[in-house]
């Protein structure tokens, strides 16, 4: 067992329509080898034993790839370290005696379901509006190597495709804009020949859905890029700006 003592200030909210508030929780015996979520496990274990409601939070793979975890820790999405998700954050980043605020992602388009759990269904709906290549499952497609793709383009497409859909970009953005998420998806396909045939409709439809969901507007502040656990570049947003402009200009 470790010996760190911390004070957590955690957002508690009983349900979507309930009023929430920050509640203080002192925790003791925290080891620096624990992950942040394991520290919350310890707290929840204690709460259950005391007959209290444990804190609800989203998490699943706990290795930084599923995109489930989503906490605004100490004033920043996924906490103080760059390029990692909350589940990869370890307690050695904190000091004995620290006071740590923990809040859910805050955006009108990500309504709180309970405590620290929010509804990110808007991302799925944006994806369903155009985040795909319209190719059915086929047993006799052309060979995968029939069309070479420049390594540079393929690598850039991968960089964009690394997005885990966690929503940290929205959480970080003072405008609650979802542009980095949308731009990453649009870019991945725009950079690959397979995605070009639908590039125009994809950009238009995904942006339309993004706007419908009520996200804010991108004003190039750049907080999203700084907080993105997968280091998705603002270059993708510029690419979306180009793609969309071209699509609007030439649509029939």
């Amino acid at each position: 067992m470790g010996n760190m003592k911390l004070t957590l200030k955690i957002w508690r909210q009983a349900g979507p329509d309930a009023k929430g508030a920050m509640v203080d929780y002192p925790v003791t015996d925290i080891s620096e080898d624990m992950s942040f979520l394991e520290m919350l496990d310890v707290l929840n274990d204690k709460l259950v034993r005391e007959g209290k409601e444990p804190i609800a939070f989203d998490h699943d793979c706990r290795e930084g790839i599923c995109g489930s975890c989503s906490l605004f820790i100490d004033g920043r999405p996924h906490g103080p370290s760059r390029h990692i998700t909350t589940c990869q954050l370890h307690m050695r980043k904190f000091k004995d005696g620290d006071v740590i605020h923990v809040e859910p992602w805050r955006a009108g388009s990500f309504p709180v379901i309970k405590d620290l759990v929010v509804d990110r269904g808007a991302f799925d709906r944006i994806q369903a509006a155009g985040g795909f290549v319209s190719v059915n499952t086929m047993g006799n497609l052309v060979d995968a190597n029939a069309q070479p793709i420049a390594k540079q383009d393929s690598d850039k497409a991968f960089d964009a495709a690394a997005c885990i859909g966690c929503g940290a970009c929205v959480a970080a953005c003072p405008n609650s804009s979802a542009m980095l998420f949308v731009a990453a998806k649009v870019s991945q396909y725009a950079l690959l020949p397979q995605g070009r045939p639908e590039a125009k409709s994809r950009a238009l439809n995904m942006v339309e859905q993004m706007d419908k969901e009520g996200f804010g507007n991108c004003s190039n502040i750049g907080a999203c890029e700084m907080e993105c656990p997968k280091d998705i570049s603002l270059e993708n947003i510029a690419r979306l700006n180009r793609e969309y402009l071209g699509a609007e200009w030439t649509k029939e």
């Binding site: 290549v133 499952t137 497609l141 995968a144 991968f158 397979q194 995605g195």
Partner: peptide, 9 residues
């Protein structure tokens, strides 16, 4: 083949 056609990088 299928995955490449779907845009898997």
């Amino acid at each position: 083949d299928q995955c490449v056609a779907q845009g898997v990088p």
